[in-house]
Write a protein that binds this DNA or RNA. Structure first.
Lengths: 195, 195, 195, 195
DNA sequence: TATGAATGAGCGTTCATTCAT
DNA sequence: AATGAATGAACGCTCATTCAT
């Protein structure tokens, strides 16, 4: 019974993801999501407090999965440099192979109420903190410069990758996103300067 | 008479900026903007096609001003490194000294329709291209690595700065944004690596 | 212009009265009232805060008129006994000659939210107080017993008339309401007891 | 088994009374009543046709009990005057000592559909007829005036008491209701007039 | 009998836009 | 050019009732 309940919950989230990706945030009425999920409008409200709660849950669940994936894969890495490469690989690969999710997280979910965006901020935070941990590890192990401002730099790195994904989407995904990993990591590690 | 016309046009844009900054995107009805501008609701539609047109114009005008400022200030610089520093300085300083504009461009205007966001993309493009020009100049002059992917790197740089501004806003502006210029530019130029 | 505004306001109240009388409280959607008034749904909200506000206004305006009528007619009376008879006459006559109003005030408006019923209470209060004043006058002038509890008795009198009107409506108005005035006043004045 | 059935039936009515008294008519969903009664939502519909049927039954049962009480207590009385006093005593005492019932019958149940109110009317009818019987007895025995209109007067009496109870509730029960019996009966018997 | 998850009709309100003045 | 009263489409959410188990 618990699995049936969980099933319908996921079913609705899945439907929401598809509907939002196809119709945009403002074109995604609760009725449309319900229809896509194959349930009645009212059923939505047995599993979610309100429309916003669907979106928050969607973001939280999926981003949670991503962060879990990051954590487990990074444990396997030996150096901070490899870890940073791993992060960028997962970031680009996951969003490239799940375009609906990419579209919804990068484009649609950002045009929501303050409350939702605060929730999204909370969901993104663990990821940004993970980047910070890798930076600190690299500093401790002598791989990274010891004068880095971790709090600033983790945002520089997250923002850089985030923008690359967004511009890839807006461009119409005309090139491979995962093919940008090497050059992105190279930029993070060596910067712009010659030599 | 042309100036009178332009006057009211600017008056409405000014009002829109203030209203959105104070009430958020969803709390900014046309009627509220009209009241703040001191005109009737209908008058808005003599100067703008529709509500979206106000926002697009707002973004375009203000960002256009910024890009003009970038261009003129960068002409004065001698090297690509200095130019990049200048860009970051202006980016952080302008948004720090104009919090309403920062709030509206970073937070509020992003929660709009696809059409508006595409327009915003067009307005941001000249800025991103400017960054690209600086990169190319640095490569030509031997200051920057010759193997840089300009199209990718200009997004990495823009995204990094963009995220820093956003997180500064969300944090409640508890620290100086312009004080982040040095460390940001350092990251762009030298990257993370030791030595 | 003020009269035009007032015109539409009254037009909506008139429509509300008719719609509620014909369809009952629960069958009276805002859209139905708007249609009956010959205006758009949204227009309602230019004149009233919300649906409840229509009902409150309806009650307040009409009952206010009644109380005004009571006051002016009672001034003309010489004794408390005549005044009491006048009150009962107006009460029965007005509601008999305005069945829609009677139906809405006696039956429909009572099935509303606590907030509305409190408002109705406020609107009825001046009327009950008027009855109290007449009682006090009668006591002062020696027409009424000096040991009357005014606060209690005004409710006994109001409740008695109120119930008579309601039962007349529920019975299907099969008899004349105004024909009950004499016997009602007789009961108030002399009570049940034999001589 | 019949008793088990009756048990759950009463259990639901009891729960309905409590829930309506605590949450008001509009705040009393079937689900809430079911929860209070400790049964499933669907179980309600094994004992009652629909929600309205619960309320009708509630009123009918409780008012039936009251009328039974009236009848048995009045048999013990010798004169119509004493009987009338008894009626008023029971009316005020019962509702004062059962505030939930008072609140629900006087305030909440009145804001219901026409159908329900007609049913309530039927339930109240035997009580009003009882008052009529007492009046007739008093006329026969020479205690009451012989020119009374029984059909009218029984409503005057019921309405008077009904309004006193309601205003006592609305006032916040700041005084004793049963302490109003003497003055109420005095008004019924002697009316207002001096001498 | 009893359950409770699922249903889906129903409605008050907002607000961008229009148009008669 | 300017006004602002009027428009009416659009939608999230509730809750009485049903029915498969």
């Amino acid at each position: 019974m618990a699995s049936r309940k969980k099933e319908k919950y996921s079913q609705i989230l899945e439907a929401a993801l598809k509907v939002i990706a196809e119709n945009g945030f403002h074109g995604s009425q609760v009725a449309k999501i319900a229809k896509e999920a194959g349930v009645a409008d009212g059923t939505i409200y047995l599993y979610f407090k309100n429309k916003e709660d669907i979106l928050i849950s969607l973001f939280r669940e999926r981003l949670g999965d991503l962060v879990d994936m990051f954590n487990s894969r990074i444990e396997e890495t030996d150096s901070a440099k490899t870890a940073l490469r791993k992060i960028c690989e997962i970031h680009y690969n996951e969003l490239e192979s799940n375009v609906n999710l990419a579209y919804v997280t990068q484009i649609e979910l950002r045009q929501s109420s303050l409350e939702l965006r605060q929730e999204i901020g909370l969901a993104v935070k663990p990821y940004i903190e993970l980047i910070g941990q890798v930076l600190r590890k690299g500093m401790d192990e002598g791989d990274f410069r010891s004068d880095l401002d971790v709090k600033l730099t983790r945002h520089l790195i997250f923002g850089a990758m985030d923008e690359v994904v967004t511009s890839w989407l807006i461009s119409g995904r005309k090139y491979s996103l995962s093919a940008q990993v090497d050059k992105t990591v190279e930029f993070f590690l060596r910067g712009l300067e010659q030599g």
